[in-house]
Design a protein around this nucleic acid. Structure first.
Length: 582
RNA sequence: GCGCCCGUAGCUCAGCGGAUAGAGCAGGGGACUUCUAAUCCCAAGGCCGCAGGUUCGAAUCCUGCCGGGCGCACCA
């Protein structure tokens, strides 16, 4: 058996094996070599570093692999070590070692995931709906991915600042405020609080397009707003507040951790825009182009092959998006002390953010160790494969999707489990329905475009959140019947292949979480959790827990408990609830 | 025109330098006297868009095509 000190809290099996192989590789190669240990279908783990090394040494790969194995100190942690195929090193972990790891994990509240060695201040910029506009499915990805990032990094011990960059400023507010005036404050508040933002916006838009007098009023109103007219600001605040209130109800329904404290609308940077432009000018980064004040980040070229400008101040003196984004960066790194800035925004805006980051770096507002990452995601496409447009009535209201999901899941819960009371069925329906939608979004590579497939998002079969929630509920059911919690087992039997496979899956949690924390590719986490739940389901089928005897039963209870905790924590990170019963 | 993203089973997607390319759904066959069958097990399903190249080895890296999406100065 391995030295227990090696199998401490947060120990990682892949790292353990790599650490054991590394000296042997170094000895054979005469220099350090990464053993590249990874999971394998042929054995528990595989190292293919001998193949690459063989070429460098000009020797037969199998001979190199054999020599590495001969020098590797693996006898206490592996049951089988062998050279296979063209020169792979296959490793089968000893059951004792695996059992030790599981027992160590079972007493680790962090489930093998260490707290970040160097906690950072991280700003996660996500969701960002527009005041007086409905949230549509296009907001789903940013909100769901961003929330997962915030939850994950927070769990890892970072100081996470959520930033909901609300669209609360700009020319549309002229017409919105005038429409508000037409309706009267009370009526407007009523409409907005009902969550009928679309009709409010459409009505304002309609008047703006059709009525020249209204258009003129709107223009004057924008000037008054920007000029700080108190009466206008009051109306504006009413709009913003009502919208925020509505968005919070959506976040509540969606189980998103954004709160009223996280609204940092564009307008909150207004006072910083002037200084930003002044500083850029003082640094000599600003150039006039057709009357607009621009930064020209290197390497950015437009349609005509000319350098592409980042317009910080328009020719009419107004500020655009770039100015606000630059001010936000300066505020986040400077005032807030953040070193990691995440922007959970669609991929189409990649160029924009590349330019903003480049400009911020030139200005010295984004200097190491601080860095910005565009956590981009693909567009939402319609069934025709084209981008879903919000204008032409092509948008799909987000709450409509959520309500449909909850209704379906609630109906299924009632049908499948008549024991559930009405209130519990509703709770389950909500957890399952929302979980299904989030899982559908998080389980595919975020870089890819996303065809809005109602059926797929509402699906409750197969590789979906309910599958994982079901596995969790089954475990809870076992403990309800047992009337006990998992006792401290002295040992864990892994004689059954299904037990062993489950144990192997469990000890891989830390590795996956570490990878996801870096790349924020949450489909890696959903994939892991699905494989874990599948391993559990097979185990559940073949290995009776409560009917087993003494030590076997104790060991299985530990496996169950650990599985439940990993599933719960993993799903928590994804923002998906785990009801005790389905 | 330039840039970014993407073409993998009928459908939705993993895999992104390693062995016989994996899941889910749909369709086929089995398993509920036994801890929730929202489950499990079995079989079937593939010129990995096309063509070159690099490599002992390519779905994966490079180049060129073909096809789809998005972006390219005062909108956010």
């Amino acid at each position: 058996m391995a030295d227990p000190s090696e199998i401490g809290v947060g120990m990682d099996l892949e790292k353990l094996l790599a650490d054991r192989l590394a000296p042997a590789f170094a000895r054979v190669a005469g220099a350090p070599v990464d053993p590249v240990v990874r999971r394998s279908a042929r054995a528990d783990f595989q190292s293919d570093a001998a193949l690459a090394l063989a070429r460098r040494l000009g020797r037969p790969p199998r001979a190199v692999a054999a020599e590495v194995l001969a020098h590797a100190d693996l006898a206490d942690v592996c049951r089988v070590t062998e050279v296979s195929g063209p020169g792979f090193v296959n490793l089968t972990v000893a059951d004792d070692t695996l059992a030790e790891l599981v027992l160590a994990l079972a007493t680790d509240p962090r489930l093998g995931v260490p707290v970040a060695a160097e906690p950072e201040t991280v700003v996660v910029d996500y969701s960002a709906p527009n005041v007086a506009k409905e949230m549509h499915v296009g907001h789903l990805r940013s909100t769901v991915i961003g929330d997962a990032a915030a939850r994950l990094l927070e769990w890892l011990g970072h100081r996470v600042l959520r930033a909901n960059h609300l669209g609360d400023w700009g020319t549309p507010f002229g017409m919105l405020i005038e429409h508000l005036v037409d309706l009267g404050g009370a009526e407007a508040a009523r409409t907005l609080s009902m969550g009928d933002l679309d009709s409010f916006y459409q009505a304002a838009r309609g008047k703006f397009d059709a009525d020249e007098a209204f258009r003129e009023r709107s223009r004057r109103r924008v000037v008054a707003l920007q000029g700080g007219d108190e009466a206008t600001l009051r109306l504006w605040r009413l709009l913003v507040r009502q919208s925020e209130r509505y968005f919070l109800t959506v976040y509540d329904l969606l189980d998103v951790t954004l709160t009223e404290r996280d609204f940092h609308g564009e307008s909150s940077y207004n006072d910083l825009l002037g200084p930003v432009v002044e500083d850029l000018d003082r640094l000599g980064l600003l150039r006039d182009s057709d009357g607009a004040s621009c930064v020209f980040p290197p390497g950015q070229v437009g349609r005509d092959g000319e350098p592409l400008p980042l317009i910080v101040r328009k020719s009419d003196g107004g500020y655009g998006y770039p100015a606000t984004d630059l001010a936000a960066i300066r505020h986040r790194t400077g005032t807030l002390g953040a070193t990691r800035l995440l922007y959970v925004v669609g991929l189409p805006q990649r160029r924009h953010f590349d330019m903003v980051y480049a400009a911020a770096a030139q200005a010295g507002w984004l200097a190491a160790p601080a860095r910005a990452e565009h956590v981009g995601f693909g567009s939402i496409l319609g069934a025709d494969g084209r981008m879903l447009r919000s204008r032409a009535g092509g948008s799909v209201k987000l709450v409509g999707l959520l309500e449909e999901a909850i209704a379906r899941a609630t109906a299924l819960a009632r049908q499948r489990n008549p024991e559930l009371g009405e209130a519990e069925a509703a709770e389950v329906g909500r957890a399952v329905g929302i979980g299904a939608i989030k899982y559908a979004d998080l389980s595919s590579d975020r870089h890819k475009d996303y065809v809005l497939d109602w059926e797929r998002m509402l699906s409750l079969d197969g590789d979906t959140a309910p599958y994982l929630q079901y596995a969790y509920a089954r475990i809870r059911s076992i403990f309800r019947r047992a009337g006990e919690t998992a006792g401290p087992a002295a040992a864990i039997s892994l004689a059954e292949p299904a037990e062993r496979a489950l144990a192997l899956a469990l000890v891989g949690f830390g590795t996956v979480v570490g990878e996801v924390a870096d790349g924020l590719e949450f489909h890696q986490l959903t994939g892991y959790l699905y494989r874990l739940a599948a391993a559990f389901s097979s185990f559940y089928e073949r290995c009776p827990v409560l009917r087993a005897d003494g030590p076997v039963r104790d060991g299985r209870l530990v496996l169950c408990d650990l599985t439940a905790r990993v599933l719960r924590q993993g799903l928590y990170v994804l923002g998906i609830r785990t009801p005790d019963r389905l």
